[in-house]
Simulated scan of single mutants.
Amino acid sequence: MNTNYPALEKAIKIAGAQTKLSKAIGSSQQNISYWLRTGKVAPDKVILIEKATGVSRYELRPDIYPSEESKQAA
């Protein structure tokens, strides 16, 4: 994999493959592939990916879940 979405790539690597991640979160492999292309995980799947892989919601969707540092700076 070589996309512009390192957080999702990290989650896929931890899960073992796109298909394994998709099964862990109740989605399809096609959705995982789409998210890699678009650079955005569906909002309703972010927490599930975090629970399944340990990749933080802040890494996966910083537009929805800003880091603590970002919140304090605002």
Rank of each mutant, 00 (worst) to 15 (best):
M1S: 13
N2T: 13
N4D: 15
N4C: 07
N4A: 13
N4L: 12
N4I: 02
Y5I: 03
P6F: 00
P6L: 02
P6R: 01
L8G: 11
E9V: 00
E9N: 13
E9P: 02
K10W: 06
K10A: 11
A11I: 02
A11S: 05
A11L: 07
A11V: 02
I12Y: 08
I12D: 04
K13D: 10
K13N: 11
I14M: 06
I14G: 06
A15W: 05
G16C: 08
G16F: 07
G16T: 10
G16L: 10
A17P: 01
Q18L: 03
Q18Y: 01
Q18D: 06
T19R: 11
T19P: 00
T19W: 06
K20F: 07
K20T: 15
L21F: 02
L21C: 06
K23E: 15
A24C: 03
G26T: 02
G26R: 11
S27Q: 03
S27V: 00
S27M: 04
S27Y: 04
S28E: 05
S28M: 03
Q29G: 01
Q29A: 09
Q30T: 01
Q30A: 10
Q30E: 09
Q30W: 13
N31C: 03
N31V: 00
N31Y: 11
I32Q: 10
S33N: 04
S33Y: 10
W35G: 07
W35H: 12
R37G: 04
R37Q: 13
R37Y: 02
T38P: 04
G39V: 11
G39L: 02
G39H: 01
G39E: 02
K40Q: 11
K40G: 02
K40H: 10
A42H: 15
P43M: 09
D44V: 15
K45A: 10
K45I: 12
V46K: 12
I47L: 14
L48T: 12
I49T: 04
I49P: 04
I49M: 08
K51P: 02
A52N: 06
T53W: 12
T53H: 08
G54H: 06
G54Q: 08
G54E: 09
V55T: 11
S56Q: 09
Y58V: 15
E59C: 11
E59Y: 01
L60A: 05
L60N: 05
R61Q: 07
P62S: 07
D63Q: 04
D63G: 03
I64S: 00
Y65A: 11
P66Q: 06
S67D: 12
S67K: 12
S67V: 05
E68V: 14
E68Y: 12
S70C: 07
S70G: 15
K71G: 00
A73N: 11
A73F: 00
